[in-house]
Computed example of a mutant assay.
Amino acid sequence: MTGWDISPTGVQSVISNVREAADGMNAGIGLYGRSVQGAMGAAGTLSFGGEGVGAGAAGLVAVALGKFVAGTETDVAFLPLRASNSANGAVEATNAYVSGSLEQAWNAQRQATLPPDVTAFLEAARKKADEKADGKS
């Protein structure tokens, strides 16, 4: 733990760049989600027994897109979550370093290298979305 030479202003500059990039990722992910929803809606439906288009189930393309999104959801959520955890860990480690607590700085740095719990993040996001849809928040 000895020999650290951290420049708080340098860390602040890098964190600013990381957060800006994470904001861009989040915007891109939002656009991706809206685009997939639009594509799924435009993909048409399957008709059964000569019934009209409105009486069918989701079309094969829409089903395939839904399965693709479900299969890549964890990977897509990982990127901005990882960036955020790393940035927050760097800030915590720098603050601890500045206050003279090298052990706390080391612990914050170590915690920041751990992979984020994407499953818990997605569950919380789904719960929040459900509550919003139900008008509870």
Score class of each variant (00 low, 15 high):
2 T>D: 12
3 G>V: 08
8 P>F: 06
9 T>G: 07
11 V>L: 05
12 Q>I: 01
16 S>W: 07
16 S>R: 13
20 E>N: 12
21 A>N: 05
22 A>W: 02
23 D>A: 15
35 S>Y: 04
38 G>Q: 12
40 M>F: 01
43 A>N: 04
47 S>R: 08
47 S>K: 10
49 G>E: 11
50 G>M: 04
51 E>F: 13
54 G>A: 11
54 G>Q: 09
61 V>Y: 01
62 A>I: 02
64 A>G: 04
64 A>E: 05
71 G>N: 15
73 E>C: 03
73 E>H: 09
74 T>I: 05
76 V>C: 02
78 F>E: 11
78 F>S: 09
80 P>K: 03
81 L>A: 15
81 L>V: 00
83 A>W: 10
83 A>D: 07
83 A>F: 11
85 N>T: 11
85 N>Q: 15
87 A>I: 05
88 N>K: 13
94 T>E: 10
95 N>S: 12
96 A>Q: 11
97 Y>I: 05
98 V>D: 03
99 S>M: 11
101 S>D: 15
102 L>E: 09
104 Q>A: 15
105 A>N: 07
109 Q>V: 03
110 R>T: 14
111 Q>R: 14
114 L>R: 10
115 P>A: 08
117 D>W: 05
118 V>K: 04
120 A>K: 10
120 A>Y: 00
120 A>G: 08
121 F>N: 06
121 F>M: 02
124 A>E: 13
126 R>Y: 03
129 A>T: 03
130 D>C: 00
131 E>H: 06
133 A>I: 02
134 D>V: 00
135 G>P: 08
135 G>K: 11
